[in-house]
């Protein structure tokens, strides 16, 4: 999707009268991840065109989940740009209405895309198990300052930092910095400022979420469905809950833009 770094996506063509769904996987995962793969099949079965890309993370033709300990030379900006390319691709393939559906970190990356200048074809956003960028017991401000200092000083040494579920995450300072900036506040603000309709589907048994995250979302009145008993991956019977709530939301999205 970027020069020299090919990326791939699974493209299931559905009813062209329905909006196409761009389904994005979670942190360092691929489109083969169970939650998104199941949901993609369910949506396709429901007649929706589904494009499930695997973010390259600056790895040509990435097909495997990227290990935490791998050299991470990607940034949130790279991810957002790649999302934009896939949206462009969908549009080029005759899909004027696109709904972004993400899971976990993918929901955050899609939200980051929406916070930029999103394509007009994007009509809606579903964030399942939306999570902020967690950095462990490190002061985020200090970390951001250090990273900014490194970037500014062009210090290229890899930085090992806890990021999301990775306790060891070697990354370039600017790449890490791009993720670290997305704390709860920025996420909430992005939700509030989303140019398209937003629906969050959260599980009340999601232990990966930070304490009070769902309450915070509710506090800012984010459209949200909380699935009782569902964990972060909404597996088991909650896969159907996720599909059902997603379909319910999609039904509300029309082909034409309604911003």
């Amino acid at each position: 999707m970027r020069p020299g770094i090919p990326a791939s996506a699974e493209y299931r063509v559905g009813d062209r009268s329905k909006p196409a769904v761009l389904m994005l996987h979670g942190f360092l995962q691929t489109r083969e991840f169970s939650t998104v793969a199941t949901l993609a099949r369910g949506l396709h079965d429901a007649g929706y065109t589904v494009l499930s890309p695997t973010l390259s993370l600056n790895i040509p033709g990435r097909m495997q989940s990227l290990a935490c300990e791998a050299v991470h030379k990607h940034s949130l900006n790279d991810d957002v740009a790649e999302i934009g390319r896939w949206i462009h691709w969908l549009k080029s393939h005759g899909h004027p209405a696109i709904v972004l559906v993400g899971h976990s970190f993918g929901s955050l990356e899609l939200l980051a895309y929406l916070s930029e200048k999103p394509d007009a074809a994007v009509k809606g956003y579903i964030g399942a198990s939306l999570i902020e960028v967690q950095i462990g017991p490190v002061d985020r401000v200090t970390l951001i300052a250090q990273l900014e200092n490194r970037v500014r000083n062009k210090q290229r040494a890899l930085v090992n930092q806890t990021l999301s579920f990775c306790t060891k995450y070697p990354s370039t300072p600017e790449g890490l910095l791009s993720y670290v900036r997305w704390d709860q506040a920025r996420v909430l603000a992005s939700l509030k400022q989303s140019p398209v309709s937003v629906r969050l589907i959260m599980g009340d048994a999601d232990t990966r979420l930070g304490g009070g995250w769902i309450k915070a979302l509710q506090h800012v009145k984010t459209p949200m469905t909380v699935v009782k008993g569902a964990n972060h991956f909404m597996d088991g019977t909650h896969e159907f809950d996720l599909l059902e709530h997603t379909l319910n939301y999609l039904k509300t999205i029309q082909q034409g833009p309604s911003r």
Partner: peptide
Amino acid sequence: DETRQQLVLPEYYPYWRNQRIYES
């Protein structure tokens, strides 16, 4: 994937060659 990554973005190739490849 990380092998391909090094061939296109070899900035941290020594780390990959000397450490990452064994840790993985």
